[in-house]
């Protein structure tokens, strides 16, 4: 089946299997491997991407069902080789250990902060509850997200 998709602002056209997931298309067809292949049951959140600005687990998302949508992956959050503010905060706070959950965490955090830059700690934890970090480095992750929220609120 034909699939047309905009990913990180770039239009793509591919021929894909009808049951291909968005995760498979991103990684295997478009070589955007920042989005991670984790549990494949929607539990771990490592494959989180934004579809029309909202966070979804791309492992459970049929690609054809989001035909024509705007998809944002972790690769789309930086600009011109510069890290996005959430990415930079994760570096600053040492919020990555093995790094496998990091892209999904950053995309889920981005989804929260776009709607609610003033999110408090419980709200951050609720927004990231679908993203598992098996290194259990949650505190630094939450600190990083709260830090970005503070700076976006001040500059807004």
């Amino acid at each position: 089946m034909k699939l047309e998709l905009t990913v990180n602002g770039d239009p793509y056209r591919r021929e894909i299997a009808p049951d291909a997931t968005l995760l498979l298309v991103l990684r295997d067809e478009l070589d955007l491997t920042g989005t991670k292949w984790g549990c494949m049951t929607g539990d771990c959140g490592a494959c989180t991407v934004l579809v029309d600005g909202e966070p979804v687990v791309s492992c459970l998302q049929l690609a054809q069902q989001v035909r024509g949508a705007e998809v944002t992956t972790v690769e789309g959050l930086g600009r011109d080789g510069e890290l996005g503010d959430v990415q930079a905060a994760f570096v600053r706070h040492g919020a990555a250990q093995c790094g496998f959950c990091t892209p999904g965490m950053i995309v889920a955090a981005e989804a929260l902060l776009r709607h609610n830059p003033d999110a408090d700690e419980p709200e951050v934890r609720e927004a990231l509850a679908g993203n598992l970090c098996r290194c259990t480095g949650y505190n630094k992750i939450v600190d990083a997200v709260l830090d970005v929220g503070r700076s976006r609120s001040t500059t807004a």
Binding site: G42, G45, T48, E54, P55, V56, V57, L60, Q61, A108, A111, L112, E126, A127, A129, G130, N131
Partner: peptide, 9 residues
């Protein structure tokens, strides 16, 4: 139910 991602879908 689930997570924000699951509830979004």
């Amino acid at each position: 139910l689930g997570s924000v991602q699951i509830r979004t879908m």
